[in-house]
């Protein structure tokens, strides 16, 4: 695209030059203006080159990462089963981690998405301007807190605080496998990790959603109000449909962070084998597994961890492709036409 635009511009601006030089001032002191050299054409070339380079770098980096991961992971993928940690081969090793990662991220999303959308909507359409501004700043500040701080908060405050809740869950809802007891006495469970992850991704989803809600065309909001819509109906009619693709992107960004988050999970979760119960110690995510084991890893165990990284990479890629597909499904009704 950039290149075509660059080539088109000189062609179109030559036209007027020709007519003026020929009809009005054929024998000017400086002579006819040349058709070829045009001031600013250099800038065009530099810009289009820079844009192309920037675009290419992204692809190159992505490609390089993929190649590195595959090359380094290969030994683990082809190694005999009994040499991999756990002794049952790579896939048996990675599957519980994949499930743990997905569970933690999904729970985090389930908690964070409604809260984020609610807060964003409050800021954009309900709160008085001063409160909205303050709240906006606070949300952006939350996004800037390093994950290790969230992790520390998770162990020292959140985990103990959730223990009574876990006790209650296991005694009343213990017949559901995910709440089966006995619950962890320290509260360092995958549920706690998920809550920490949720707190971490709320600011991301909130601030992107808020920006998108604010961009809803006044025209459509007024259309809804003029039909006799209440404020909430106006939001459902005009704001949500407009914001839908953007909010999905925001949620996907949040999911990306939840899937890849390392430090907070490594600190909060007392890891172990895959368990159905979310309130016992156990389970592990890929990112935390890599971080905890990487310092002592070498040779085949290093390859195994890198292969785990490759799997995480693929999961994230799949999630993003699915999100794109969901967004594009309603293109005809997006209002872009």
């Amino acid at each position: 695209m950039t290149r075509t635009a660059g080539e088109m511009t000189p062609a179109t601006s030559k036209g007027p030059d020709v007519t003026t030089t020929q009809t009005k001032t054929p024998e000017q002191a400086e002579g006819p203006r040349p058709l070829s050299a045009r001031e600013g054409a250099g800038g065009d070339k530099i810009f289009s080159g820079a844009a192309l380079a920037a675009g290419a770098i992204i692809l190159v980096v992505l490609f390089a990462v993929a190649v590195f991961l595959i090359a380094q992971a290969l030994p683990a993928l082809v190694a005999p089963q009994d040499q991999i940690a756990g002794g049952k081969g790579f896939w048996a090793y990675i599957l519980p981690l994949v499930i743990g990662t997905v569970i933690a991220a999904v729970i985090a999303l389930v908690i964070a998405t409604p809260i984020s959308i609610g807060v964003a909507l409050f800021i954009s359409h309900y709160a008085p301007r001063e409160i909205a501004q303050i709240l906006g700043y606070v949300i952006d500040l939350l996004a800037a807190i390093p994950s290790v701080v969230f992790g520390a908060w998770g162990i020292s405050f959140l985990a103990p605080a959730l223990v009574p809740g876990y006790n209650w869950l296991s005694s009343t809802l213990g017949w559901i496998p995910i709440f089966a007891g006995p619950p962890s006495a320290t509260g360092k469970t995958i549920m706690t990790a998920s809550v920490v992850l949720a707190v971490m991704i709320i600011p991301i989803i909130t601030s992107i959603s808020r920006e998108i809600f604010l961009q809803t065309p006044k025209l459509h909001e007024e259309a809804a109000l003029a039909l006799g819509a209440t404020r909430w109906e106006m939001v459902k009619m005009a704001v949500f449909p407009f914001a839908r693709p953007g909010v999905i992107s925001a949620v996907m960004l949040g999911l990306g962070r939840a899937l890849g988050e390392t430090m907070a999970v490594a600190l909060v979760l007392s890891s172990g084998p895959l368990l159905a119960s979310l309130i016992k110690s156990g389970n592990q995510t890929i990112a935390a597994e890599i971080a905890l084991n990487f310092p002592e890893a070498s040779g085949l165990s290093l390859s195994t961890l890198i292969a785990a990284g490759l799997v995480l990479f693929v999961i994230t890629l799949v999630v993003n492709v699915v999100a794109r597909w969901v967004i594009s499904r309603h293109k005809e009704f997006s209002g872009a036409n």
């Binding site: 025209l219 007024e222 259309a223 109000l225 009619m237 407009f242 997006s334």
Partner: peptide, 16 residues
């Protein structure tokens, strides 16, 4: 507003 309807300067059907 359900008794007094309104049509705006620019056409604004709901795009979705």
């Amino acid at each position: 507003r359900t008794h007094v309807g309104m049509v705006f300067q620019r056409p604004n059907p709901f795009p979705t």
